[in-house]
Simulated assay, not measured.
Amino acid sequence: MSQNKPIVVYYRVSTKKQGESGLGLEAQHTYVKHFYPQEPLAELVETMSGKDVTNRPQLQKALELCKRHKATLVVAKIDRLSRNTEQALRIYSDLEGRLESCDIPNLDKFTLTLFMAIADRERELISLRTKAALDEKMKQQGEWRKPSEVFKQGLASPMGVATNKEKAQANENNKRAAAHVKLLREKEEKTWREIASELNEKGFKTSQGGIFQATQAMRLYKEV
């Protein structure tokens, strides 16, 4: 890993959340700076999954810079470049071998092919294990995401409508109670305890269906 050649550093984080928080990015930066302390031509950061290299604008920009300046593309880990053997080898070929990764010393076409093939195989095994686990769960428990009885009976929509109506009625009840609280407080200058008592006498209920206390009457007044 020569310090005299020009380099372009490419960093990638997989999600928007990681990109905003710097999760993973700081570690990549530490790896690169350890092995390549010189000033790079450019450092490009991408927040995107590793599925397809053609849809990564920062990577395409990094490749263009490398070709224009005969620079070496540097990544902290090879999976930050790609998780697909064919894609990684295509980039290696396009750059005429000017590709280096901190996790693969003396990277060449053979070691790149070997590392990528192992990564490909591991991904396939993970996919197979996940599918097998889900199949086994379905055998033991039947359909593991069972619909509720209200959905089975076609009652979900009517129940939703009824719930919304109840919420609307409760909201309207609160509005009327709040207006009454304001009247009693400002016009008749009653205490919060007296106001709560009058609300209960007139049949008003809290949003939970209970009786009013002084603190709840005061809260209603503040929300008006």
Rank of each mutant, 00 (worst) to 15 (best):
K190W: 11
K152W: 15
A117R: 01
M48Q: 10
L95M: 06
V150E: 15
R83L: 12
A88H: 01
Y36I: 07
L184G: 06
T72Q: 03
L95V: 05
D103G: 09
L99F: 05
Q169G: 01
K175T: 11
P105Y: 09
V13D: 02
K175M: 14
N173I: 06
R56A: 03
V74P: 00
H69M: 00
R219H: 00
H29P: 01
F115V: 11
E100R: 11
S49I: 01
P37Y: 08
K131W: 03
S93H: 13
P57A: 01
E100C: 02
L112S: 01
K16A: 01
G160I: 10
F212Q: 02
Q18F: 11
F151G: 07
S14Y: 09
K67Y: 09
I104M: 10
R219K: 07
C66F: 09
D135G: 02
A133K: 08
G142E: 12
D52H: 14
Q18A: 03
W192H: 02
Q58I: 13
A196P: 08
M48Y: 14
E201I: 11
W144Q: 14
R145D: 11
T113V: 06
G210T: 08
E124Q: 08
K70F: 06
P37L: 02
P37A: 10
A162L: 15
V224N: 10
L184K: 05
K190S: 03
E194H: 06
V181E: 02
R56Y: 04
A178R: 00
Q28F: 12
V32I: 13
G209A: 11
Q38I: 04
L44V: 09
Q141S: 11
R56F: 06
L114I: 14
M138H: 01
Q140E: 12
T85N: 13
K139Y: 12
N106R: 13
G160C: 07
E96N: 10
R83T: 04
K77E: 05
T30V: 06
D79H: 08
D103L: 01
L81K: 12
A62M: 00
Y11A: 08
L25Y: 05
K17Q: 14
L155C: 04
E43N: 07
K175V: 02
L23W: 13
V161D: 14
E223F: 10
R80V: 02
E143C: 09
I126W: 08
E166M: 13
G97C: 11
E166D: 15
R219T: 04
L183S: 14
H29Q: 15
V150F: 15
A177C: 06
V74G: 11
L107I: 01
E39H: 13
N164R: 15
L99T: 03
A177G: 06
Y36V: 07
Q169P: 01
T111N: 13
E186R: 06
P158A: 04
T206V: 03
M1N: 01
M116T: 04
V161E: 15
N173K: 09
V32N: 03
T72I: 10
Y31H: 12
Y11V: 02
E188P: 10
E201K: 08
L59P: 05
L59G: 04
